[in-house]
Amino acid sequence: MSIYIIFALNALLFASVLFLLTAGLNIIYGVMRIINLAHGNLYALGAYVTAWVLLTVGYQAFPGPLLYIVPPIIGVLVVGLGALIMEPTLLRPMYKRIEEFQLLITFGVLLILEDLFLLIFGPYPLSVREPYTFLGVSKIGDLSYPNYNFLVIALGFIVAFALWFLLYKTKFGIILRATSLDREMAAAMGVNVKSLFTVSFVIGAMIAGLAGGFIVTKDTAVLGMGIEALVLAFVVMVIGGLGSMKGAFVGALIVGALRQIGTAYFPEIELAILWLIAAVVLTIKPQGLFGR
């Protein structure tokens, strides 16, 4: 029995990370109608910076709970800064161009970031252990489960709630949703579309950075991690629907569960199952489960 609880927790864990990734992608797509192929590498940037901080400064430098907060926040800030530079210089000239070019320019950023990691952080994976092992394990029946994973699961739900609040309960959220529905109308109503785009791009990127900062102590920062993550986030996005926050949430849960079930019972075709389901959803409902 307890093993199934752990299966469920694993699914939630994976779903949490996927949701954080997809939520960022969806905010950016919803507002700007751009699919950011470099998004996975922004997540990797968060992971790399966090790991690098922990390795060079040392975990001893952060007393108590600061250890869990400060290094990822540094990662998130670096990602935010990167996004703040990227949007006006590379994306802004693209808004009036065809979507193919928008996709390709982010593909270019993906390639560049991939090599910048190599250049800055070196070829070895950056592995940190401390915050992950410090939290110890919980007993579930006769099995154990790492406490750190609960933290990551919680993070997903906290961010989901925060985003819901931001989008539906604040004035900023109303403006954001209005702009995503009709850009011209929003502009006519006096919304500063330009700065709104910058802000939403930075928020989307920072959520990805946050995910990277938190998973890195559980995993490692390694070259290629961004591309792997992006591809999975794509599956979630396709299943849930482009630009839909609810879709990201449900899609992430579906993919998280599928992956655990696939690994446990059909390890041979686990990856293929994910893509097959994505293709089926696209065929039956091209706009995804919750797409508009």
Binding site: F101, G108, I112, D115
Partner: peptide, 16 residues
């Protein structure tokens, strides 16, 4: 060894 950096930059310059 940083060939992706070169490819990516070329792509961006081309598109811009």
């Amino acid at each position: 060894i940083f060939w992706r950096l070169i490819l990516g930059s070329v792509l961006i310059v081309l598109i811009l």
